[in-house]
Nucleic acid binder design. Structure first.
Lengths: 330, 330
DNA sequence: TTTAGCATTGTCAATAGTTGAGTGCTAATT
DNA sequence: AATTAGCACTCAACTATTGACAATGCTAAA
């Protein structure tokens, strides 16, 4: 545990660095600490020894290490209250009765992205733990129907199916009946296995154009499981304006990561506090921090996240996420 | 019109520059033209005079101007045939019967993005010229239903509606009947106007919780019209690896543009040839070229586009787009 | 019309010198 | 025992300066 002055000093250094993006020198902070720059230097050397500060080169000022940020977030920082104005902006969205909840969440995260100038992400939960609830068929014209697949947790997928000599509405309905009778309750991930081993063998008895229709549904379920598109970014490049992202390579590599569905789904949070992943922990870039939390509202769960530079206004962002999480969960 | 040698020379310079990204000097190409570097220089000076070439500084080699690229594309270049391997890869997708057409298009453009290392875009047509065909309601649980909105051109939008004390399934059905009786055939863009002026005034007679239900549908239609999400990128940052995109600012600005829905929808192409928009014409960046074409398949239309550096392999890309367009339109 | 030859131009990379902000350490001070 | 003043030292960042080089334009000869 650090002494009082050391705490104060680390806090000042982190916040100064967050503000200016420049290594913090001893002279610049000795006023705020009421002591000489030499004293500051001694303390700084100690904080560096125990791994909370770093230098960019032998004679540079100090920069917080990842450990330093961590200590700051865990012990020195207090989440910042939102301003009246901010609360107002968010309330007009959150209290809009005619907005569906998930839309309200997305909209408020868009606002937060604008207010903070970082990137926001709303990530619906993966559907692999959803179970098939039912399949519906709706004819929409003489030569097409929509098949609607519904899961127990409310995920919906629709797929338009063309009708032709090979495929009749009647046959599709028979297939749907089969599925509804035999596969309801199956994990979405496993529907296709069952489709292949339980439905396919008996399908010939009921349906003429088995091959075409079987493929149709096989594909529809396949799409549903492979679809990880259940997310929504806002301000995707906002934070990349910070001076630490000054190389084309770096910008490209981060943008690439934010396009990568595997990376995105790895952001899904499982614990419900406000969790802070600093630098390398973010799995995106050593200069990036991700702050996220899981929300659960009547059974539906998801992750909301703010992605920004490691040199991020932690107090502000954590305050906002706490607020939003609180609001949507009631 | 240029002379024979001038044509040849411009072609060589453009292709050399596309390959190396370095200004082309007189010495390096005099062998291919069977004349001395001095002669090349004289001709180069002429091509520069008439605006087809540029210099990066007084004593640098030459670089094609936008006009030069244009002339190259219009007069000097021949679309390149696909290799057997490429045709094969694309055919396995295009001939897969169980893929819906739009999926097949998206998939093949993904392949093309990989084959060329540029960015591909499939852009569904805007739905503003669609007309309302019908609205369906499907109950999915005790406390929710899906409303499905279908247009004459086959666009489908679904929206989950929560049922509670305020909103009953019965009332929703009544509303849907009203809409299906009175608004079918209306342009999607105008549905909400009609909803407000034709349905709202008479709604009270039939439905109790008019306000809530009215808002529900108003929002659903609103979402449908404002949703321009009908597009699909592949390899969004591929081409940014080219050496001309070496500044963080440039990368950021292009990525920003490719995130911007207004920019994306401005890419929609109205003419059906293969159209080439070079540099500033691309509306994205002076170093970017967009090559695109419109396709129409049984009533449904859309745009496919390749986005890459101005220094792009025009022959390859144009060849591929021609091929794909031909394939999907049959 | 083409080409050889030459002065000229601007880029690039290397080198060197200067400045200034910052450090660490030691010895004196409180 | 803690603080501070003072001083030597380090390094990045900036500014010239230089030479090598790859082009050019132009002129005069072929």
């Amino acid at each position: 545990m650090l002494g009082k002055r050391q705490n104060e000093m680390l806090k000042i250094i982190v916040e100064e660095y967050i503000k200016t993006a420049k290594p913090v020198g001893s002279k610049s902070i000795c006023d705020s600490l009421n002591c000489s720059s030499a004293t500051v230097r001694n303390e700084m050397a100690y904080l560096e020894d125990i791994g909370y500060l770093e230098k960019t080169h032998t004679s540079s000022g100090r920069v917080p290490s990842e450990l330093g940020y961590r200590y700051y977030v865990d012990n020195l920082m207090k989440p910042k209250e939102l301003t009246g104005e901010e609360v107002l902006t968010l309330q007009t969205i959150l209290s809009n009765q005619s907005l569906e909840l998930s839309d309200a969440i997305t909209k408020s995260m868009e606002i937060i992205s604008e207010l903070t100038n970082y990137t926001s992400l709303v990530l619906g939960s993966s559907i692999s733990d959803n179970r098939l609830k039912k399949v519906e068929v709706v004819p929409i014209s003489d030569n097409s129907v929509i098949a609607i697949i519904i899961t127990d947790k409310g995920h919906i997928e629709n797929k338009t199916i063309a009708i032709n000599e090979n495929i009749s509405v009647d046959e599709i309905r028979k297939m749907v009946d089969l599925i509804n009778n035999l596969l309801v309750g199956t994990l979405i991930d496993e529907v296709n296995k069952k489709l292949e081993f339980e439905i396919k063998p008996i399908i010939g008895k009921y349906i003429k154009q088995q091959e075409a229709i079987y493929n149709m549904f096989y594909n529809a379920f396949n799409e549903m499981t492979s679809k990880k598109d259940n997310y929504h970014f806002s301000g995707k490049t906002n934070f990349l304006k910070a001076p630490e992202f000054d190389s084309a390579d770096k910008v490209r590599s981060i943008v690439d990561k934010l396009e990568d569905k595997d990376v995105i789904s790895s952001i899904e949070e499982t614990s419900s506090g406000i969790n802070v992943y600093i630098g390398d922990e973010s799995n995106i870039d050593s200069d990036v921090t991700v702050i996220k939390t899981k929300y659960i509202v009547n059974g539906e769960e998801g992750t909301i996240a703010i992605i920004g530079p490691k040199r991020m206004k932690y107090d502000k962002v954590i305050g906002m996420l706490e607020y939003i999480k609180g609001e949507i969960e009631k």
